[in-house]
Amino acid sequence: MEDILRPIYQERASQANTLGVLMIKKRQRDIPVTDTFDTILLILVTEAETPVFIKHYTYHDKKAALYMVTDQQLNEWLLLGSNKKIFDWLYNGKILFDRNEYIHNIKTELMEFPFYGRKLKMGLEFAKLIRRYMDGKVFFENDHYLDAYNHVVHSLHHLARLAVIEQGFHPEVTVWQQVKQIDPEITKLYEELVNSQEPLDKRLELLFLASEFLIHSKMKSGIHHLVDVLAEQDFWSINEIINHEEVLLYSVDLTMLLEYLIDKGIIEVVMKDTKGQGVFHRYYKLAKKLS
């Protein structure tokens, strides 16, 4: 089908705002990273009317999809990990056009995974982990076991992703295959949760006990990014933290993370007077440095 699609991608490659073109082919009996399509054309551009533009094609019994994606959208996917297929596309796609080695440089950066990018992604995953874990605990304590189970599964997934990032790798579609090699203890915990024959409440009870240790072991790397931000000044209002450009990406989970860190003695609450008697502004500061 590549010959059929050649005029399409050659036309795109000739345009000034096209940065690169990749072709991804469906691999038999493999994870469906092409969404069942035989071929994906990924066209990366500097700007467009919409961040993602998609077209579908068919030829005889074959299907193809064209994705035109802006540079800004691609960077967001890579940072947040919100489109896991994109990593496979960049790793395994065939480069058909590469203006000024744009795709080559992205692939090099993905392989090297700069420390700043890792630190931010670990902060994001740790914040999501704490949110799911704490919510799951509340559901469990109120005997809502199925809801608790749902949150715990998600929290373990974030824990697994955090372990992968900590070792300098990007979490991919097969994150559990990755973490099995990197941190088998997390995999064992996950398997015990989903495969155990124990009643659900007993499984959850044991998991909360075991998870506490694993979460604590990842806390230092998970909050490194936030600690660096909070070290910039003596104390912060919640609004200042949430709107800090470095923290915006995980600000939705920040309040729960702050409460968790207050409980662990990492962050301290500072009271400031208001005009109301007995009512105080609540500020936050680092209580101690992480070694």
Score class of each variant (00 low, 15 high):
5 L>Y: 05
5 L>H: 08
13 A>G: 10
21 V>K: 01
23 M>L: 15
24 I>E: 00
29 R>H: 13
35 D>R: 02
38 D>L: 00
44 L>A: 08
46 T>R: 13
47 E>T: 12
51 P>V: 09
54 I>F: 04
61 D>M: 06
64 A>M: 08
76 E>A: 11
78 L>H: 11
80 L>M: 09
80 L>F: 09
81 G>A: 13
87 F>L: 15
89 W>M: 12
93 G>N: 10
95 I>M: 08
101 E>L: 08
108 T>K: 11
116 Y>F: 09
119 K>A: 11
128 K>H: 06
128 K>W: 07
137 K>M: 14
143 D>P: 00
146 L>D: 11
149 Y>F: 09
164 V>I: 15
166 E>Q: 14
168 G>L: 04
169 F>E: 14
170 H>E: 13
177 Q>V: 04
183 D>V: 05
191 E>G: 02
193 L>W: 03
199 P>I: 05
207 L>A: 10
212 E>I: 07
215 I>L: 03
216 H>I: 08
233 Q>H: 11
238 I>C: 08
242 I>Q: 11
245 E>R: 15
249 L>T: 08
249 L>E: 07
256 M>N: 04
256 M>C: 09
257 L>E: 03
259 E>T: 12
260 Y>H: 14
263 D>V: 03
264 K>E: 05
282 R>K: 14
283 Y>G: 05
289 K>T: 05
